[in-house]
Design a binder for these strands. Structure first.
Lengths: 352, 352
DNA sequence: CTGAAAGCGCTTACAG
DNA sequence: CTGAAAGCGCTTACAG
């Protein structure tokens, strides 16, 4: 196969000019150096005819940029991250960048490995979803290469980041449930030291206090590696209080995975949503559509995550000096379904 | 930021030897050329100490390989492809390759663009999910670069491919439904000229004939761009025959998206699964777990797709001559849930 | 407006 | 066992 690719030299010979001229003509800006219009046309035509494709390796070696960025997510087969990946990919292609993806699985060793591989490949910058205990590795690379953090940030580290307004997100959930009259609202989150996890929990607590429900605050923390088990015991503890003064009326799930596992668990244990318990989940999901009732959930602006993080990164890459740290906080929305409709009188609300 | 990266030259100067020697010592095989063990150790130690990271662009330019492969899927945010992407990614990292992903959205223009971008970036090979009307572009690139087709193949084009045994897949579904006594089994597939789509349909027809149900064959074809609409009209046509001699007892969905849309539609139209209609779907999905009954579905061996396609590609890349075409046919399995349990007497089967 | 030349960092025959 | 040198394909000051 193959049959050598045409190079700039081939074109130069074909047209009868120097390699330099071809190079200038091809770099459409031709800034400063002006090539005659006629010659430019001739060169472009010949290049096309000979099916010229620039050799990126050579260009990279010369200019020290690869036009490639690295993106390290938690897990690219997780819908939330897959959707973001897709946005980043599309936008990067537009801007003439190529993207290398990696999945850390919330494992700091893996994450550090990916950073090393990408760094060795010479990416121009990275978008990283930080995981626990990877702060140091990330700060190290951020000192040498443009980095934008996604979904979570690192405290006291001046690294650009794009995150959700997580407090706002959960307060929307509390507010909605409260508006239907629920007051014993519990929260199921992760047992992870991640800023987004922490902020969601803090948002729950603050919001409960705001509505005068401080005494009803109940936080359940699920271990990332034991989601089904821990959810089940959390929900069993809720079940155990059924019929008492302490009985939960509603549950807020802090992530999409937790929502889905939680709903499965409700079904397994015979709890009906929202009759037995009202629910607000996190992130939309195809799965919700197969559930017997429509789910209320917090919607994250996926496209904004992709666009903002990429734009921020490219700005860092293309600007020489990077003097200020940008922290972008995205606005969540509440998508209302019937799962959040808690009815004090235990009769169903009229469908709206 | 930065502060130049150390190069081979820096190490050579630090140790007091030639660049060539450093290069040989670093390429651990050092095939043929033997560097004294002592010197090797010294060089390796210095390299580590100086935090040497090879410049891939330079290496690529020199040896003409980038250790990068391109993978073009239909849509990386689709679970089936996302899972495969994840497998390919993991395995490629192990083998020291980097992966660039692209999503064609079944659009031949997009697919051709991605091929061009990846080709320009100098990938060593590509794994491609072919879409309609992209045969030519794919054959062109396959003539110049190693290519492995995934999920679908191109007829009369000698390109390596890894696909499911799609006939077998659907025959498992028919067989299962038939074993419960269903005989009026309908098929909902795509209106696409893709080998996998075609084979599934052919498998359905062949299998129905095999069970003597030729007269019950009914194929519904859904347009890729109008999935919800077309599914709904297909299902309404089924509903319209309810209570007649022609009433469908069961439906087989040919893909995961069709299954999910179909189940949603059943719920909307008030059809109960399997009481009103039995179902066998395609590909597992988190979504199935929120449905009120467990779904029977055809399971594709995701990991095999990833592993086989990558291994085949790397073999093509690393072997000099590529004389024979490999076509890998993967074995599907039936995961049995309660959705396929059709009961002739309209009484529920005992739960097993 | 155009050309000759250097050099990015690496690998690899060719000598010794 | 080790060194000197060429060259992969490109970009870009420097001359003219």
């Amino acid at each position: 196969m193959a049959g050598k690719r045409t190079t700039i030299k081939d074109i130069a010979e074909a047209v009868g000019v120097s390699k330099a001229l071809v190079s200038f003509a091809l770099s459409d800006s031709s800034k400063g150096y002006r090539v005659s219009e006629e010659m430019t046309k001739k060169i472009l035509a010949t290049a096309k005819e000979m099916n010229y494709k620039p050799n990126y390796a050579a260009r990279s070696l010369r200019i020290g940029k690869t036009k490639t960025i690295g993106v390290i997510l938690s897990d690219i087969s997780n819908k939330f991250f897959a959707d973001i990946a897709r946005c980043i990919e599309d936008r990067a292609y537009e801007k003439d960048y190529t993207v290398i993806f990696g999945s850390s699985d919330e494992n700091p060793v893996k994450l550090e490995n990916m950073i090393n591989v990408m760094s060795a490949k010479g990416v121009d910058g990275m978008i990283i979803v930080p995981c626990e205990k990877a702060e140091k590795a990330i700060c190290n690379i951020a000192a040498r290469t443009p980095v934008v953090l996604l979904d979570r940030f690192i405290e006291n580290a001046d690294i650009d980041n794009v995150v959700l307004n997580n407090r706002k997100a959960i307060s929307l959930a509390v507010e909605s449930l409260h508006s239907y009259g629920a007051s014993r609202i519990e929260f199921i989150g992760y047992d992870l030291a991640l800023t987004n996890v922490h902020e969601r929990e803090a948002g729950y607590i603050a919001s409960m206090k705001h509505f005068g429900l401080a005494s009803n605050i109940r936080v359940h923390k699920v271990r990332f590696k034991y989601i089904p088990e821990d959810i089940e015991s959390a929900i069993k503890s809720i079940l155990a209080r059924k019929g008492t003064e302490d009985a939960a009326e509603a549950v807020i799930f802090a992530t999409n995975s937790l929502t889905i596992e939680g709903l499965k668990c409700f079904s397994r244990l015979g709890l009906r949503v929202p009759d037995d318990i009202a629910v607000v989940g996190f992130d939309g999901s195809e799965a919700f559509e197969l559930f017997y009732t429509s789910i209320s959930y917090i919607q994250q602006p996926i496209e904004d995550f992709g666009r903002e993080s990429l734009d921020l990164l490219l700005r860092n890459i293309e600007e020489k000096s990077h003097t200020k740290v940008a922290s972008v906080s995205l606005i969540p929305e509440l998508v209302t379904g019937k799962s959040a409709v808690w009815d004090n009188s235990m009769k169903r609300m009229p469908e709206k």
